[in-house]
Design a protein around this nucleic acid. Sequence first.
DNA 1: GACCTGACGCCCC
DNA 2: AGGGGCGCCAGGT
Length: 111
Amino acid sequence: MAFRQKQYYEQVYHVTEQIPVGRISTYGAIADYLALGSARMVGYALSQSNANDMPVPAHRVVNRKGELSGRHHFKPPAAMQEMLESEGVKVEDHQVVDFKELFWHPEALDE
DNA sequence: GACCTGACGCCCC
DNA sequence: AGGGGCGCCAGGT
């Protein structure tokens, strides 16, 4: 239902927005937390958010390997890395350094 | 209206 | 351990 879709997008934006500065999350983690759709849908939702000029820190969301898979979707592809580095997240070869330690679990919202 | 692709991830071989 | 395939849902062609 379109109803559910809107809710899904809204939830994705909400969760993404809760990612603390200097921390990052993954598509899979968000999808798992929402228990809806799939990681792919999360990325899709985020792409829409960027197009809508939403205040969603999509740059803090990477794939499960810690790679900036979505960098190519930013206005300047390098913007994603720059923003992350600006927040204290080190990026090396399009990959987040110590990604595992910087990883933020959406599950933290429940607690 | 059908087919393909897309910010991914897991299961199977 | 590495590679390939399928699932996910929606949107564009």
